[in-house]
Design a protein around this nucleic acid. Structure first.
Lengths: 339, 339
DNA sequence: ATGAAAGCGCTAACAG
DNA sequence: CTGTTAGCGCTTTCAT
């Protein structure tokens, strides 16, 4: 039952019912008796104001979008969970879309989200550059916070990892263990986080005077299969690396598989540092030394930032920089040894 | 820009613009010239009919809900991805909610989804019984397809695994390998899939004349931690089991950890069969023999079924039973050996 | 082939 | 303290 029917039933005006049911009874000084009557009847017929009518009128949907490249990736599913949890406290629902790491799909999903006039969007872009997306966002009035990857020339706030630092961290860890011939397995040549991580790693490598063999920097995808192919290539080099850093995703599983195929013992014959902590990181053979991102903190910042952009701005909300850059840290386990 | 502004700009009526932009130009025999004019202008100002107005008028939201207990669980995130992909082809967006395995939250999320008048809901309930939920769904007019767990007395179609069969399968696999003292690690005493799987396993165990020691059927949670606790209990028994079946979730990781702590070699000292294939199943030590559910098929059935319930029923859509029960199969790897 | 007008369910400004 | 009214943006019937 909708609120006008309810009003009719009670023989009072819709406005009054609306005021009671949307929690503005006090503000309009509705009498206790009517408040009770309305509440009781609403309960009885379980009548709730239709959010659709309300949204059309107020222009507010109480819904934000979450656009991620791969919900199957634990990094994003954990992010999604944390974000939804926090948003729920503010009465916001989450419209999820998964672009499947595909720019064309991403473009399409973004337009439908913009068209839907959501209250805001938390956007983790596909790694590769996508000009359409930047333009679409700039032309829209919807508050957007960008996550994981910062898109240049976009005037929306972003939450991201200091990928340069993270890459450096991984390489330095290996260097400190005595490695000099270190390979990096990339997800996508064009992908921002990977590129930065690679740059960071190379800076560390150069600073330590390591070899700079282009053959050591390879990779073409985030999947386990891509990791497998890359690792095979690396391990069949005349002079294979003594350590591999996987710059993203599930590729590490491919590395483990390749090592297994080649009877290569980790960490004795090959050390490995993997980007992104995963639920299973501690349980593969051997337990992995990983570079971990502060997911919960990212979710918190993204939501807080987005809510602060929402109108009317949620009062009393902490404000902070428009470009939050967080630091990763290394979780040491047993996949790194001296060469 | 919305379509009335567009109409004003073109000096024609909103109706006409609406008819063109919602693809009904032919139906209303709009002239080619106006069609072109409207299309061009819409393109230029990138004007799209506001879905909100449209929804209010038609009562259709082009949005379905997906309510899962834990998006972080690969079973559900893969399901979510597959579902969203298929739904997108039908122009439907997905409103995701995660109940965090909590009935109270689930109740709340369900009500808001029902209130939002979505076009339908795909619902994977929390494992424990939740009467409020059944009542809410029965009282609603929204098409609901239940997934993973069937709720009794709910007149909506369901897609589920034959959990009894799956439990049997796991136990028989172990029995065939020569095991007679087999433990089952449960997620939740009250949870439907677990209970059925347990029942199936016990049937197989009884049929094979195995011992029926209550101490062997333990467990209290889906998390790795719960699995760890349960496994410790099991392994410290005076006569520990020679094999463990984990009936659900991440518990298996806890078993691996407990075995590790106790210097127990898998599969030599202890065999293990794990429910639910995971991305890492092949890569832990040792690679796990798992019971795998046909996720893609479940997603396909759920979406097809839901669309067939949607009004107007999507024509040409295959129809099938209201209680689809799918079969699991075993993926043999290396975590099972003769005792 | 197109326009006018009603109405989906709600909220908020205005009027008492 | 409560009612009346207008209008959010759209689709659709009815009229022409």
């Amino acid at each position: 039952m909708n609120i006008s029917e309810l009003a009719q039933h009670l023989d009072i005006s819709v406005s009054t019912v609306s005021r009671v049911l949307s929690g503005n009874a006090a503000k309009y000084r509705i009498s206790q008796s009517t408040v009770k009557r309305v509440r009781a009847a609403a309960e009885k017929f379980n009548a709730v104001p239709d959010p659709l009518g309300s949204s059309l009128r107020t222009g507010r949907l109480s819904m934000i979008g979450l656009l991620v490249p791969d919900i199957t990736n634990p990094f994003f599913s954990e992010l999604a969970r944390a974000i939804e949890l926090r948003l729920r406290d503010s009465g916001m629902a989450v419209l999820l879309s998964d672009s499947a790491e595909d720019s064309a799909i991403e473009n399409h999903l973004l337009s439908t989200m913009l068209a839907r006039k959501l209250d805001g969007l938390i956007f983790a872009p596909v790694g590769t550059t996508n000009d359409g997306v930047a333009a679409a966002i700039r032309n829209s009035v919807m508050p957007v916070v960008t996550l994981d990857r910062v898109i240049p020339d976009l005037n929306s706030p972003s939450i991201s990892l200091d990928n340069l630092h993270a890459g450096k961290l991984a390489a330095e860890h290996l260097i400190a263990a005595g490695h000099r011939r270190i390979a990096c397995l990339r997800g996508d040549d064009d992908a921002f986080p990977d590129r930065e991580r690679l740059r960071g790693a190379q800076q560390a490598l150069n600073a330590a005077g390591c070899e700079d063999d282009p053959a050591l920097f390879t990779g073409d995808g985030y999947s386990r299969e891509a990791g497998l192919a890359g690792a095979r290539r690396l391990l069949s080099l005349t002079r294979p690396p003594t350590a591999i850093i996987t710059l993203s995703g599930q590729g590490i599983l491919g590395v483990l598989q390749a090592a297994d195929e080649g009877q290569i013992e980790i960490p004795d014959d090959l050390s490995v540092v993997a980007f992104d902590e995963q639920p299973w990181s501690a349980f593969v053979n051997p337990p992995l030394t990983t570079v971990v991102q502060p997911i919960a903190e990212m979710a918190r910042l993204a939501v807080t930032k987005l809510l602060s952009l929402t109108s009317p701005p949620n009062p009393g909300i902490e404000d902070f920089s428009d470009e939050e850059v967080l630091l990763a840290h290394i979780h040491e386990r047993q996949s790194v040894a001296r060469p």
